[in-house]
Amino acid sequence: MHVLVVEDEKKTANFIAKGLKEQGFVVDVVNNGDEGYHLATTEPFDAIILDIMLPGRDGLSIVRNLRERHNHVPVILLTARSELNERVEGLNLGADDYLTKPFYIEELTARLHSLIRRSAGESSNLLRAGDLRVDLVTREIKRGDREITLSPREFSLLEYLMRSPGRVLTRTQICEHVWNYHFDPDTNVVGVYIQRLRAKIDADEEVKLIETVRGVGYRIKEPKS
């Protein structure tokens, strides 16, 4: 999948590009708005990640112009401010999502995935890890033939883990994504939920999918393909 990153702050652009590439995205990075707009109109991207404050054309006007030209490529706005009107204006202009800096790259990729899935249709609504299947639309979970029922919070924890199979997610990252950041990072809500999840998913199974990376966090073992 081809993603355009328009971000004037080079270091930020770099770690975004790096993180996305690791997830298998093809990434183009430009550092100013005019160039970004030019590329966005000339090449077909699967998604655009757009900083709002840019030299040249700013992010909001790029979105507006793209939508005026009936270009409906999914756009995620990045903003350093969380000013309400900026967010609202961005979404009104046709942006699909926004992220406030600073953000975790995992959060960005998770959102990117869900955006692309939405725009691409149903095909990618299914997440798999080994014999575990998660249908994001029907919210059905199956381990082999066994149906599993999860609470909403357990579901979103599992979904988050399965978005990045094989990658370690720290408790802080999980906390921010699933619990919307506000518990203190060193509380063990995450640990407790992981245990619950394990009890439902890995109990009595030979292959334990949810793995603890000692001192770091948790991950889903990559499905053997």
Binding site: E9, K11, T12, E22, F103
Partner: peptide, 17 residues
């Protein structure tokens, strides 16, 4: 402050991985 924080967090995350 947010800009340097964004970079720090992003790079740390990458290094962590």
């Amino acid at each position: 402050l947010k800009t340097p924080l964004t970079i720090m967090q992003g790079e740390l995350e990458a290094a962590l991985r």
